[in-house]
Design a binder for these strands. Sequence first.
RNA 1: GCCCGGAUGGCGAAAUGGUAAACGCGGGCGACUUAAAAUCGCCUGGCCUCAGGGCCGUGCAGGUUCGAGUCCUGCUCCGGGCACCA
Length: 924
Amino acid sequence: MAYDPSLIEPKWQAYWEENQTFRAEIDPAKPKYYVLDMFPYPSGAGLHVGHPEGYTATDIMARWMRMKGFNVLHPMGWDAFGLPAEQYAIKTGTHPRDTTQRNIANFKRQIKSLGFSYDWSRELDTTDPRYVKWTQWIFRKLFERGLAYQAEVPVNWCPALGTVLANEEVIDGKSEVGGHPVVRMPMKQWMLRITQYADRLLEDLEGLDWPEPIKKQQRDWIGRSEGAHVRFAIIGQAGTAIEVFTTRPDTLFGATYMVLAPEHPLVAAITTAGQRAAVDAYIERSARKSERLRQAELGEKTGVATGAFATNPVNGREIPIWIADYVLAGYGTGAIMAVPGHDERDWAFAKTFGLPIVEVVSGGDVAKSAWTGHGRATASGFLDGLETDAAKRKMIEWLEAKQIGRGTVTYKLRDWLFSRQRYWGEPFPVVHYSQGGSQGGSQGGADGRVELIPESALPLLLPELDDFKPKGEGFEAPLARVKSWIETTDAKGERVLRDANTMPQWAGSCWYFLRFMDPKNDTAPWSLEAERYWGPVDLYVGGAEHAVLHLLYSRFWHKVLYDLGLVHTKEPFQKLVNQGMILGESFRFYDDDVSDSARPGAARRYASADVEETDDGPVAKSDGRALKARWLHSSKIATDANGNPVHPEDPALPLERVVEKMSKSKGNVVNPDDVIREHGADAMRLYEMFIGPLEKAAPWSTEGIQGIYRFLQRAWRLFHSEEAGGDPSEESGGRSESRDTFRAPVPGTGTLEQRRLTAQTIAGVTDDLEAMRFNTAISKLMVFARDITKDMTKDITKDGTKDAGKDASSELALPRDSAEAFILLLAPMAPHLCEELWQRLGHAESLAYAPWPVADPAMLVADEITLVVQVNGKKRGEIRVPVDVSDAEAESGALALEAVQRILEGRKPKKVIVVKGRLVNIVG
RNA sequence: GCCCGGAUGGCGAAAUGGUAAACGCGGGCGACUUAAAAUCGCCUGGCCUCAGGGCCGUGCAGGUUCGAGUCCUGCUCCGGGCACCA
């Protein structure tokens, strides 16, 4: 039998399943290792080659840690609530549950075909009522602790999706999903008080083994800034004051006007009669302003004076109060003191409206632009001469002494908008008393009392529905229409209304890693025992697109659970790794058929070099006619004599190689099913790990996997010999069955060279896995497979060029020690092949728990080494020396080289540098 | 605009401040074969050279060092994130 993954792989997948090989149980005698993938949303499109990259990396770590004696928890599940299933339901009437179940089945089949060592007995699905129950249970805890509340907030309403989106889900004024327009409008919504945890979310980043850029992104997102709150009295309105937040209290002397956000509650009260019409018009206009318009107008300053004035508390000057939409209602106090000399936005505004600009910090030229850097305070009374930091401190002291302000801290982080007007999500386990309540905001209701439904009533499940469309009039949630579900009674029989909102998709993913620890528990979300043993996640791998949202939300919930004593660590994910994206490769040309329905042959084709990109799209350089880009899949292209890609029907047309995100329209999507069918799961796993560092994006190359496949065959052939039994391809049924027979390695440890190579490979692969450098680990195993049976002693001739091939053809036998080490080293990466070889070596048990090989330290040091000889830092030769050569001997050996003498031309070296075990550098 | 990454052969890449390009793809030559595929071996950064060999070479320009892909300064380009956050 030749290497045939289609026979080996299903065999071992069945074996692992039957023997429950990867079932994890709590075992206090063993150290634990919890390795987790970001669980996928099971989309209808199925797995793409990007998914298995992270899964393979975690699987290698899981299998490796098992072999190192750890008790490994490695689960998989489904983030199964989500918009696509609901949108599919709107289109087709298929219940999202059915779509979801079907997609999960497909995902599971695909993932299983890759041979990952998941403990499938722990599989979970966030839409499962047994899971929803505990998501709702956690919401109860949040509510009880005052961390969940309802508020009328301006939200991002997306009419096309029929739902409200979180700020994070809105990109450039359009929905992240689908790119539909989004408008801002006030609605009553569930909010989670994540801001209460801002400081802890910031501080606890310290101890985490996460990529620094991700930590920074989280810090920036939380956006802590220190400054001061200052109250400005309004002239003629005794007792009213405007409070502002500033990070530069040291510039207070330079505050020449104030600005309120248009939504600021004091606007109506302070506006003078003369300005009322203009102010109202401005408020009206900015409220209607779409996100897109806001984006487009960025930088242009608009605003209106209210007619009112305030007193600058440090110098008693009267300063005008304006409203302008460059001040955001949601940050700080929604009002600012404007210091045009030292803030770019204020400077631009002051220039636009002719307001005074005063320099109070030296260092720039405020006539030309705002100076935002530090410097010495000037024209600032008691601050004069102080450096910025000292000036800030002194001003805060002064404000606090006078009781007109105080040092304070603000955050960019806002409370988390936690409700969606969708069907396919977790219902809120609450009821509303009296009329109104939150019905997706449309009824805006009286502030009826909200109460949790009893724990015993969980899970609160979704009602069945046959029409999933959001209603046309305004923004009513689908659930609001289900009167039979919405209207209910409480324990005392009082009429109450359920909440028509559902939770966002984040809810389920905020705690799934905890449920994996104890997924079948009916009496608690997880047992304390399980959490104390398995928690926290030791290694978490997923895409960088979750850098802020999922990770921040999960950390927040985790901290709440920590405060409740339900988890014993402050942080959920100790080590985080972001895998890079697998990109698609395609080949581009252009043609002048700009219609979408390309008429074959009719169009004139252009190479990329003859095309120019303009604002109106690509045009031909020659005559300027409009062109359209076309893409060819790499399997469709031809190559010219030099190996360059050309169009298959037009060999004179060079193609441009393009590497980018996989998408259907570019014809560069690779389906894992196809790859596995052709090359097997082991080859796919290995290839994804081999194309480059895990964190880096890399293109999938259809040819590249061939090299990996060859390596696996080579590994197979180390243990098999082709038998010349019978004529090959003698009408043996179409397929040429080259019959290999198992060739057992010879007992023992082999030659010195073989022992060295084996030890080096063990040490190298182990180091590489430790650092998750899978690409270099694989290359070391390739070198091993190539050289282990090669008689190296014969073909090392100093210049190596002549007839090396002839001598090298003499082959050594494969020693059993080396053979076993090789199989075990390769096993985490190519488990099917290695299990098969392991069995053929005579082992009855799976190698999943076989001990990881240890390198013989004596074999890692050579007796003789090669030193590089440099003259003035440039390589001129090398010398073979004993490993313990003295510096003097190395030096004289180097100087004896003919090449060195020639270059020195009899000069005496000025200096000789000997680097132990490395080189000799002669400076002369 | 701000913040993060990144830039090394035809391509994916490797390289504790110490032999740049390991390993793989692609390409070339050869072996095996009636032939092809598969497999195996060798070659494969550029330029110069009669051999020996030499010169150049890690986005650009400098610097530190006996020695720089690696460290420092200033740029260029590409990718990603954030965006009037006071």
